[in-house]
Simulated assay, not measured.
Amino acid sequence: MDIKEIKKNAKERMKDFCILCAECNGRWCAGKVPGMGGAVSGGSFQRSYEKLKEVKVAMRTLHGVTDPKLKRNFFGEELSFPAMIAPITGTKFNMGGYVSDEEYSNDIVFGAIDAGTIAMIGDTGDPNCFQVGIDAIKRANGKGIAIIKPRENSEIIKRIRLAEEAGAIAVGIDVDGAGLVTMKLFNQPVGPKTLSDLKEIISSTKLPVIIKGILTVDEAKICVEAGASAIVVSNHGGRCLNETFAPAEVLQEISQAVGNNITILADGAVREGVDILKYLALGADGVLIGRPIIWGSIGGRQEGVKVTLETFKSQLYQSMILSGADDVKNSKNFSCILYTKKV
């Protein structure tokens, strides 16, 4: 099975929830929420794609980098490359239903392990979606991360306990899900979090806590003050609020402000291995991959997820050779490989 076969299968199976456009820029699927698109006009989804696309890499071949190092440690786990699977749920109402939420969770958790990395399982209005993700992590002896919607603190802490019982590597809150349409449809209240809210949640567990959905320096600093282990610079795939900044626009500034104090992950519009390199050069320690993993699961199940991740890893390796980037652990020094000084 190769990536072309996976995409072909996924296109046939997704029932027009996603038609796997030649350029996955969020235009065809604009407004399809629930579904695979961005909110309202799809502007935030499209901007995430376009702004990352504007970042260009300087090809450099007069150097001695012939075997770049891709391994990176996150939350006590050494990963084969600095990428993890983004938390995505709702296979029936977002992806067409070819795979169930249980099947999708198993595909991503075990497919990620096969590729030497880890998956984040997600939370949504249907409580079954989170539970099947937790069950997959438990079967994988804890090799996974549980990301929880910004519910009431007591509800978040209940779900953290489930993650702890499953042996999860880390937990997180995707605070950018504070206004999600899908949560409202299921009558599941979510909302913003204060500094004191975050402190209460973080102090409730010994697991590393990730705050996903940060787009400004001031909120990145709040996460540091609260004691978070990591942030994800993300606009939730443009699926919550239209007309937001793109992660690629704000990542450098955030990294310069807090990069020495907290792990920084980036999420949004990662479509090939060179996109990982761009985010690393902009200041991320690692990235999350979302939409292509959906195609991997639907187009090839667990093997499809593994092949998708290994394809990204191979592309990143080649991109590093052709730009002179020697080791992902030195990603804070990668900015010199970009043509653009300012995104």
Rank of each mutant, 00 (worst) to 15 (best):
D2P: 03
K4Y: 11
K4T: 05
K4S: 07
A10N: 00
A10M: 04
A10R: 08
R13I: 06
K15Q: 09
A22I: 15
E23Y: 15
C24P: 04
R27E: 11
C29P: 03
G31Y: 03
M36D: 10
M36W: 06
G37L: 12
G42H: 08
F45T: 02
E50V: 10
V55D: 06
M59A: 10
H63D: 14
H63Y: 13
D67N: 13
P68T: 14
N73S: 15
F75G: 00
G76Y: 13
L79F: 00
P82F: 01
P87Y: 12
P87K: 05
F93E: 11
Y98I: 13
S100G: 15
E103M: 09
E103K: 08
S105K: 08
V109C: 03
V109E: 01
A112H: 06
D114I: 05
A115Q: 05
T117G: 09
I118S: 00
I118Y: 02
P127C: 14
V132N: 02
G133A: 04
I134T: 15
D135M: 12
D135G: 09
K138G: 01
N141Q: 11
I145L: 05
I147T: 04
S154H: 06
E155Q: 14
A163K: 07
E164S: 10
G167Y: 00
I173H: 10
V175S: 03
G177R: 12
G177D: 12
A178Y: 04
G179E: 10
G179I: 05
N187D: 10
Q188S: 15
G191N: 04
S196T: 14
S196G: 03
S196Y: 10
S196I: 15
D197F: 04
D197W: 08
S204C: 11
T205L: 09
V209E: 07
I210W: 00
I211C: 11
G213N: 00
I214D: 04
L215A: 09
D218L: 04
K221G: 01
R239V: 06
N242K: 14
E243S: 05
E243T: 08
E243G: 11
A246M: 10
V250D: 05
N261M: 04
T263Q: 12
I264A: 02
I264Q: 01
L265M: 09
G268R: 08
A269K: 13
E272N: 13
G273T: 07
L280P: 10
A281W: 01
G283Y: 01
G286R: 09
V287H: 08
L288C: 11
I289L: 13
G290S: 13
R291N: 14
R291W: 04
I293W: 01
I294G: 03
W295F: 02
G296N: 01
G299F: 02
Q302S: 11
V305W: 11
T308V: 03
E310R: 13
T311N: 11
F312R: 02
K313D: 05
Q315T: 09
Q318L: 12
Q318N: 15
S323A: 06
K329V: 14
N330H: 12
I337W: 07
T340S: 07
K341W: 06
V343D: 04
